[in-house]
Design a protein around this nucleic acid. Structure first.
Lengths: 339, 339
DNA sequence: TGAAAACACGAAAACGATTAAGTGGACAAA
DNA sequence: TTTGTCCACTTAATCGTTTTCGTGTTTTCA
């Protein structure tokens, strides 16, 4: 690989001049610069990332940690969709994206923070279920620019899907369709779960809805089996709900199974709603009522904010961006006669 | 950040000794090594990736280019699933993963090869629809270790989903269920499409099946609308097929729509088959018959082979690994009375 | 006892870039 | 003529490692 030195030799100037010519510094003569640029091209010169990073302490590389319960954020529709959008904007602004090593089994591995320091990431973006992981907190407390997705931390930039509004609108809609006995199978404990759950309770209270404890169950996200089992328990109740909310669209499918297994129809006998609005949700028959999260915007906003934070730390406002989703009225919530 | 120099100062030895002590070289005294390791830990020492890479010309970083038609491999179930498995194995073996910048609009951007050289990737993995892209060929022709997914190039390592066997088994199955008029809506032209298509034709010939030209249509991958339209055209034929194959599970859903729009039933009136076996395929009612590709194995094999290639270039066999999928017999292919 | 071998460590040169500070010449203003 | 200001470069230090080649000390063994 041709280096600055090679070019300097050929052009008969010093390395410094070559570097400056290529980087657009002012104190280089016009014809010298032209010649240098020409020979650089001819020799197929490419700067050396490591040398540059070593000297400047900047990598233009962003570390991403997208981890779900199964330690694989990539097959997770919501995460991968956010990541895709994040990647797109970051690349547009000249940043590369490297995964923070998520493999916890490796002997002698580095912690998330160590890895980030080692690689010299200019900033990191975090999206994971388990923000209680001590390694994650360590990273959050560090001096590396961070933006979190769907989690709020002390003095950190956060981009958050509006679960409060989403859940509220969903519940208002269901209530407006005449439902009064509404059950909620929520996901495993996490910031997202907590905000949806509290919004659920608050909205219910506001509406004067009575939510018996048996109507609130837990089933892991994206676990159709667990959702199916939980649904079974709800249906076996002396007074079963008329509508059931699920942790996500995937889990809702488990509900479909349980309901149909009992010979009941959707939404004729039981109404159903999901959360996420993943593309495949259109496959369900009848079309699933759900809340679509704006992954495109969430990813874009995270990238923008993180890069702003990296490039203009002083003037960038640390804030919480709350990105609204949208209610997708499918066909799974029946219109009930008011009782 | 503490550096080797800092440690050397504290321990009263030279940087060279510190480096060697930390890297397990033999010519360091026992107690010296112990002391060095201890103070390194105390000072929170972390090696500097860039310095190391600069000196050794090794990054332990793998570049990935996963690009589909829409330039976003991440939201693509098949790709993201392969990538997830790839990432997992690579991380286990101590490699990081960085995306090769796919944004083609940026002024002054680097080509895939340039970017890979710039970043000093130890190897790259390529999975994309458009292997005809000159930038991709440039990368393929370079001296960087490469493994391609679902594409065969001259003297390069390739890991390939067995589309020939997959399509063959699918067609044999459909034929065994009594179908004789079988249509195939295939995806846009690519290596994958070509191998499925040729396997389709060969198997049909072997079975003595007559495939009229009107039975072969094209619709982009994962494009439900296009598939729906194509299906419409097939159904409007004077002698419509009894079974339709789709580019993938997503497209198959477009088929569902078109068929039901006409008041026909699946598989009562028309049989349907997809390809991929994505998780959400279980949502379709009736359960989709499809070919599940073994993304887990494809990702794992690619990573292993690439790393072998990086670490032992001489002894690693360049080969084509063909990973079989499995036929998922759903309920969408009817058993016909033999005519 | 003396030579050879083993051991523990250090000096120094890279790797390829960036950048502050310095240098010498041309030219203009005083 | 002197002084000063640009201009277009160069010098040289530096980032943090790795690694080759010494070098001085100790041990081994004939």
């Amino acid at each position: 690989m041709a280096s600055l030195k090679d070019i300097s030799r050929v052009c008969g100037v010093s390395v410094a001049t070559v570097s400056k010519a290529l980087n657009g510094y002012a104190d280089v003569g016009e014809e010298t610069r032209a010649q240098i640029k020409r020979t650089a091209k001819e020799m197929g010169y490419l700067p050396n990332f490591s040398a540059r990073a070593l000297k400047t302490n900047r990598t233009h590389d962003i570390g991403v940690l997208f981890v779900d319960e199964a330690m694989s954020g990539l097959t997770h529709d919501y995460f991968s969709s956010v990541l895709d959008s994040f990647k797109r904007t970051a690349e547009q602004r000249g940043y590369d994206i490297t995964f923070i090593n998520g493999c916890k089994e490796r002997p002698g591995r580095m912690s998330y923070l160590e890895h980030s320091r080692y690689r010299g990431f200019d900033g990191v973006v975090l999206a994971c279920i388990d923000f209680d992981d001590p390694e994650v907190s360590e990273l959050l407390k560090s001096d590396i620019p961070v933006v979190t997705v769907d989690y709020l931390y002390n003095n950190r930039m956060a981009v958050i899907s509006d679960n409060v509004k989403g859940m509220r609108e969903l519940l208002l809609y269901i209530h407006s369709r005449g439902h009064r006995r509404i059950a909620y199978i929520h996901g495993a404990d996490s910031a997202v779960t907590r905000s949806r759950l509290s919004s659920f309770y608050r909205t219910a209270e506001e509406l004067g809805l009575e939510i018996p404890d048996q109507y609130i169950l837990e089933a892991a996200y994206r676990d159709t089996e667990a959702a199916q089992a939980a649904t079974g328990r709800l249906l076996d109740l002396p007074v079963p709900p008329t509508c059931i909310l699920y942790p996500d669209d995937f889990a809702a499918f488990g509900g479909f199974n349980a309901i149909r297994e009992r010979g009941l129809s959707i939404p004729g006998d039981i109404s159903v709603a999901g959360y996420d609005g993943i593309p495949a949700a259109i496959w369900l028959e009848p079309r699933l009522t759900t809340v679509r999260q704006d992954t495109e915007k969430i990813g874009r906003a995270s990238a923008r904010k993180l890069i702003d934070l990296i490039e203009r730390p002083k003037t960038t406002l640390i804030e919480q961006l709350v990105i609204p989703g949208s209610l997708e009225m499918g066909k799974t919530v029946a219109l009930l006669e008011t009782p």
